[in-house]
Design a protein around this nucleic acid. Sequence first.
RNA 1: GUGGACGUAGUUCAGUUGGUAGAGCACCUGUUUGUGGCACAGGUUGUCGCGGGUUCGAGCCCCGUCGUCCACCCCA
Length: 403
Amino acid sequence: MINPLRGMKDLTFEESHRFNFIVETASTIAKRYGYGYIETPILEETALFKRSVGDSSDIVSKEMYQFEDKGGNDVCMRPEGTAGVVRSFVHAKLDRQPMKQKFYYYGPMFRYERPQKGRLREFHQFGCESFGEASVYEDFTIIIMISQIFEALGIGFDLQINSLGCPTCMPPYKQNLVGFLTEIKEELCEDCNRRIGTNPIRVLDCKNKTCQSLLVNSPKLINNLCDECDTDFKKLTQLLDNAGISYEVDTNLVRGLDYYSKTAFEFVSNDIGSQSAIAGGGRYDKLVEFLDGKPTPAVGFAIGIERIMELVKMPEATREGIYLGAMTEDAVEKLFAIATQKRKETKVTVEYNAKGFKSHMKGADKVNARYAVLIGEDELKNGTVWVKDLESKEEKTITVEAF
RNA sequence: GUGGACGUAGUUCAGUUGGUAGAGCACCUGUUUGUGGCACAGGUUGUCGCGGGUUCGAGCCCCGUCGUCCACCCCA
């Protein structure tokens, strides 16, 4: 028997149903906010992610499915969705269009990690990217949209927000932080010491308790923002307050992808184990030009579909369609014409084996059909069918034509 | 990449100090040649993950391997 690869999962029955429900619900809401569907390739040039997500991130440095294709190109399976959408945006020269552009997507992402609860090697994200809107109103609107999606799915969450600053205020802050960290480096963990050189901001969300206690007095970016970033962040909190969305400012919230600036947010659930982030995103105003487009402000997010699978409250399944069965061999082939006709408008299940009445009733029940339609000896003789509404329990015998 | 737990029927699991497998659910049949969800009775289903070792004998003990799960890490 050939098994799926490690960290890859088949979705069937209940689960695939759930998956579709999540995607449909999120898509419906995204469209209401003006987002249009975009699909980009799963395979991309490796350089795309090195430049956008960043070489120093774990994702790029050790988790990518990367290989040389038969043409000698250095390619990889996308580890996240934003980079591909931005590449596509620039490639289609949409950066030269005066209008704002909004896209939503969903699909598989690949990261070579050790699987655990809420973490697969092939996982799925639903995401949105909004281009050309610099206003913090858009950041706010996106957060509202995500909360509406979660509300529609029946999922509770905590919202954490932070500002990562911009090219004006981030570099001086970073220098300041490196200075602080260098003084206490003896006491910091091994990983943090490495991060001081590669990506000092990441030290802030180190899980090590000793590190965290040492960081209590570290300089906070939130207190060192430039005027514009500071004004925007205050505006965002004010908008959220007015909208009645509760949130927590987490000064240690750092996105793992290098392209984020200004607003960063994460939706978290306490009910799903240690992989608690169910959605994350923020602003990435520099990414478009970083990928050779004209400077275009942008903001986006992604929801981890697997992370919310078991949290989703599905609407109750209702009886649907028709179950067709015959009680004598001769009647079986009478079913097909009826089935073909009825399939123009509804779901039809045809049982190919002639069997007893009770057995058919059970079968109709099992597929959750609304109507049980059976042909027995009498019906075959008279050119009729026996129809029962399994919900109202009403039954009747009518001609095939009338049915 | 690190650590821990676990791999037995379609599924969830039991299996005593080592003596060649069992239950619930599911499925099929019947009670009921025409009234579903319920009940009762009967029945089908196993490379005990794989490979080696110890032993008269291994589901059980030992080694290896693959896989799953959980945590670290990472992140959606």
